[in-house]
Each structure stands twice: as C-alpha cells, then as structure tokens.
C-alpha cells in the first residue's frame, strides 16, 4: 500500500487584491499639480479606508460585516441606538478590550476599548471614493471635525489603529498608522482634494 505523509496545512489568510504596502508620502512628490497630487494621496488613503478591517464597522445602515469577504456579522447583531448593539447584546458582550486568541483552535476575536460601529453618517460601504471623500470633509457627517481633528482621528485614534493590529486570522490594513497619518496630513496640506 502506498504510504505518504503530509504536514497539516494551516488555514492561510486570503490575500487581498489591494497592494499590501502603503506608499510613502515622498513617493507622491513627483506628481505635478497640487490638486492632482492631493487626489492621488486620497486614493492612497482609500487603501486603508476601503480595507475590510475599516469598512466592516462603517456600514451605511444596519449591523456590521466581518471577514475579508465582508459577510454579515455572525451572530447576527444590530446597530442599536448607540451604534453599540442591542440592549441585552451590546458589542461588549463578545468584544473585550483587546484581541483574544481562541483557545480551542486558530483565530481570535477582535477587541479594543472602545469597540463600536461608526455612526450611520460615517457609513462607507458601497460609497465611491469621491463620496467618501466628501463625507470625510463634511462636519455635518464627520462628527463635527475640522481637518486637523480628522487627521488626529486617522493618525492617532486607537480603534482606527486596531486595523493595523487586528489579531490572529485577520488581514491587517496596509502600512502603519503612522505612515497613514503622514499621507492624511499630506492630503490636507495639498488642499484635501477629492476625486472627481
């Protein structure tokens, strides 16, 4: 009888279509025209913004999605009045203050303090880059932030930063939060232009 051996393969994390790397701000210096450069910087920002780690909790209406294929969250959860789940099953029923590796197998449950959905006004799923850009700059929809505060949110907020450290079994967003912050700053410095 033929005898053969095989080492059990670990489930590989599916690769995303996007570039795994975030370009450095300096890579945009060659682009002629400040507005064109600004748009290019925004499109680089979209590598982060449109990453499933970010989009999953920026739905446009109901509950979150999950995974790189952005399937509905399981167990089923609803947004709730405070973007924090339903009375009796808030986000914190399962999500703690840190990522927690499963003890029975591979993978982890994500966590951070705080852990919540972005408000409906900041929903991104299904929006074009231009629409997201307009929304980001609109104080009516962005949580009454000016551009400096927007930069602070993108560059320093802990829950945003979770996207780069999402725990075992999840693809991190590209680059680092620091590098992303630099791109956001460069985008603001070049006039925070939006794609046409």
């Amino acid at each position: 009888m033929k005898k053969w051996l095989m080492i059990a393969a670990l489930a590989a994390t599916p690769a995303l279509a996007q570039d795994a790397e975030l370009r450095a701000v300096g890579d945009f210096d060659d682009i002629e025209g400040e507005e064109v450069r600004s748009v290019a910087l925004f499109e680089e920002m979209l590598k982060v913004i449109e990453h499933p780690r970010c989009l999953n909790c920026h739905p446009v209406n109901g509950g979150p999605t999950q995974g790189d294929d952005m399937t509905p969250h399981m167990p089923p959860v609803v947004r709730g009045d405070a973007d924090f789940g339903a009375p009796g099953m808030f986000c914190t029923t399962c999500h703690g203050t840190q990522n927690v590796a499963f003890v029975t197998g591979d993978g982890s449950i994500p966590g951070h303090e705080p852990w919540a959905l972005a408000p409906v006004s900041m929903g991104w799923q299904g929006l074009s880059g231009a629409e997201i850009c307009a929304q980001l700059k609109d104080p009516e929809r962005n949580g009454d932030r000016d551009l400096a505060e927007l930069h602070e949110h993108m560059a320093e907020d802990g829950l945003v930063g979770w996207g780069w450290h999402p725990g075992d079994g999840r693809t991190p967003v590209p680059g680092t939060q620091e590098a992303f912050g630099e791109i956001v700053q460069a985008w603001i410095d070049t006039g925070a232009a939006c794609p046409g």
């Binding site: 167990p75 089923p76 959860v77 609803v78 709730g80 339903a86 009375p87 009796g88 099953m89 029923t93 399962c94």
Partner: peptide, 20 residues
C-alpha cells in the same frame, strides 16, 4: 440582561438580544 435594560421587549427586541 435584556429585561434589566428593556422591561417590555418586543419579539424583535428579543431576537436582537438573544440571537447570540
């Protein structure tokens, strides 16, 4: 947990709290 926060839940409230 549900009843402490919502003493008179509807069927939908129950589904939302108990689906986990």
């Amino acid at each position: 947990g549900l009843l402490r926060m919502n003493p008179a839940p509807t069927d939908e409230d129950i589904d939302n709290a108990m689906a986990g």
